[in-house]
């Protein structure tokens, strides 16, 4: 549009307006949380925690079995490491829950009030975390 570009101040003002628009667009394109995957990721999280717990117990027993085989103390380390493995499974599970709720909290900070509404399962722990953080 050559007709608009001739007046100097008008052009500058226009440039500024364009710059503001670019900034706004950039801000809009800034990474923010997507809300659509909420339900899917709740199911995925449940799955994830289940496998973590099972694998934790399994790994603990495997380590115990291995130590017992090497040291010839049949049930002793199997039991000890079975318990430790269970604890490790729970620990991993809790960490997953923690990490999801942390992500949630960060997402809530970014998007402000437009945080996702009701969320099954992990939502409860997410809220608990948020209150302990704030």
């Amino acid at each position: 549009m050559p007709a608009d570009a001739t007046p100097d101040e008008g052009g500058a003002a226009k440039l500024e307006a364009i710059e503001a628009r670019i900034d706004a667009l950039r801000a809009a394109r800034r990474p923010k949380r997507l809300g659509a995957e909420e339900k899917v990721s709740a199911a995925a999280l449940a799955w994830r925690m289940t496998t973590e717990l099972v694998v934790g117990v399994g790994l603990g027993f495997a380590i115990g079995w291995w130590i017992d085989g090497a040291a010839g103390t049949k049930p002793l380390f199997l039991l000890i490491f079975g318990a430790l493995g269970f604890a490790a499974g729970v620990r991993t599970m809790l960490r997953s829950a923690q990490e999801v709720s942390r992500r949630e909290a960060r997402g809530a900070e970014q998007t402000g009030a437009s945080a996702p509404p009701a969320r099954p399962g992990p939502g409860a722990s997410a809220d608990g975390r948020q209150t302990t953080r704030g």
């Binding site: 799955w47 994830r48 496998t51 973590e52 099972v54 694998v55 934790g56 399994g58 790994l59 603990g60 380590i63 490491f81 430790l84 493995g85 604890a87 490790a88 499974g89 620990r91 991993t92 960490r95």
Partner: peptide, 16 residues
């Protein structure tokens, strides 16, 4: 426990 839980991750990662 922490060590075991660290090694749980690649296993559960692949099994899942």
């Amino acid at each position: 426990i922490e060590l075991i839980s660290y090694f749980v991750r690649p296993i559960s990662h692949s099994i899942r």
